[in-house]
Structures are given as C-alpha cells and as structure tokens.
C-alpha cells in the first residue's frame, strides 16, 4: 500500500483548506511518511464528482485506500466504497459508527464539557449558532440535550449565508427582549465575526456577552479579546486515521479508534 486518497467537496473555489482539514492532513501525513506512503488530496465541486473520483481511482489503481471526512447520516459513500472494494477509514461521531473502520469523536461528551464551562460561570441563557454541515446538526442536537438535562435556557440558531451570515444572526440574537449572556459559535470564523458584531453594538465581551468557538484556531487565539474554544485535536485525529487505515489493510478487519476528547481552552472571551 502506497497512496492514500482524500476527496474534499468545496462548492466554491478556495485557495487553501480550512484549518481543521489541514490539521487532519498533517497528522495523517506524519504517519504515512513514516511508512514511506503518500497522501493525495483532490478538490471537487459536488458529491457526484466525489463518487466519480473513487470510481476513477479504483480503475486506475492510483490510490490504495481513502479517508472519508464530513460523514452524513446514512452516508452513501460507505456502501459505494464497500461495493468497489476500496478500503477506507472515516472520521465519525460516536452516533455514526457502523461496521467500518473509523476514528470516533464524541461530540456529545465535548458539548457537555463546553456547556459546563458556561453554566459554572452562571450563564442561564445560551444560544448555539450552528453551521452548514451535517455534523453541525449533531452538535446542535447535543447542545439541546444538554439544555434539557442541565435546566438552562438553550436555543439553536442557523445563520443564512445569503442573508448576512454570522453578523446578521448575532444582531438578531441580541435584539431579543431577553438576550442570552453567552453565544457558542460552531466554528472559529463565525465566532471571530460574531465578536466584532457584538463589539460594534456597543456591548462588551465577556462582560455583557460571553463568546465560545467550537473549534480552536489562530483566529481565536489572535482575536481581541482572545476567544475561548474547544482544543483543536485535528492533528491527533489525523494520526489516528493513519493508524486505523494501516491496521485495516494489515488485518482486513474494521478498526475503530477513539479520538481524545477536546478540552476547553479558556481565554479572555468567557
């Protein structure tokens, strides 16, 4: 086995990959290079093109196994790859596991830690601003489950990119008669944009509103004030995916590995 493939669906052209994907790639590469293997990443515009790439790779034998990211419920790529006979490993939430190789991430457990960080600081009304991808809805569901169990007032809002995205949804949230004292953003970009909006409204962070980002990045670290975030374990997840693939191919059996839980990196925004 020499070449591992990763297909990324990006509907709009982008110059570089998002930080979480880069982190996974670099961790994976670290493992592969040690075994004198290679990682190829191919960018496509939609999921039909993604399947076409797997078909082409299977025909040309130019790639020996693939990594699946951004799993969805009943993801059709799994059956597709199994039918082709292409070995793969997926990055999946605990709730998405099946009879295939995967690195499992426990979003519910991580959400529990995040919410505890806020409720410990006296927050009783919290809004979760979700993202576009399906994994975000798993996190949103975990957030609402925490609200029911923990007895705080929790709401989920989904920004509409066409209608102003993070900025507009933040304004709507804070225009409420009884606005929340904490906002959790599903990604670093929205959190950084939301922070700017909150400050533009004349409110202070964390005095009036606390801000948390689900995934940590340089944006969170260099924002003013710096943004509290869940630690970025992408590099470790990437290394585990590499191990899972190597074991899968060596043993012919599905290999399940568990990613370490992210922890809260406490900064100035909470």
């Amino acid at each position: 086995m020499k070449d591992i493939g990763l297909v990324l669906v990006q509907p709009t052209p982008q110059v570089a990959h998002e930080p979480l994907i880069s982190g996974v790639e670099h961790g994976l590469e670290e493992i592969l290079i040690k075994s004198d293997m290679r990682l190829v990443t191919r960018v496509v515009r939609d999921s039909a093109a993604e399947l076409a790439v797997y078909r082409s790779w299977n025909t040309s034998k130019a790639v020996d196994a693939v990594v699946l990211v951004r799993l969805t419920r009943g993801d059709r790529r799994i059956a597709f790859l199994e039918k082709l006979g292409v070995p793969f490993a997926a990055i999946a939430d605990e709730s998405q596991l099946g009879d295939f190789s995967a690195v499992a991430i426990d979003y519910a457990g991580m959400m529990h830690a995040l919410v505890a960080h806020l409720t410990d600081r006296g927050h009783t009304k919290i809004v979760f601003v979700s993202g576009a991808e399906e994994l975000s809805s798993i996190r949103a569901a975990a957030f609402l489950a925490e609200a029911r169990a923990g007895g705080f007032d929790g709401h989920v809002r989904k920004p509409d990119p066409a209608a102003g995205g993070s900025d507009a949804v933040t304004r709507e949230i804070l225009a409420d008669d009884d606005p929340p004292t904490a906002i959790v953003y599903d990604d670093d970009l929205s959190a950084a944009a939301g922070l700017v909006t909150i400050q533009a409204l004349g409110l202070s962070v964390p005095g009036d509103v606390a801000v948390v980002a689900w995934n940590d990045s340089v944006r969170c670290q260099s924002a003013k004030p710096s943004i509290t975030a869940m630690s970025n374990e992408a590099h470790t997840v990437g290394m585990l995916v590499g191990q899972s693939l190597l074991e899968t191919v060596a043993t012919g059996e599905a290999t399940l590995l568990h990613a370490p839980n992210s922890f809260i990196v406490e900064r100035e925004s909470t």
Partner: peptide
C-alpha cells in the same frame, strides 16, 4: 489557471 488548488500530494521529505 486562476491559481485555485485542485489537488495536492505529500510524500517523504
């Protein structure tokens, strides 16, 4: 041609 990334490969240094 526009400089947009279509693929990448990483191997040993």
């Amino acid at each position: 041609l526009a400089g947009v990334l279509v693929g990448r490969l990483v191997s040993a240094g």
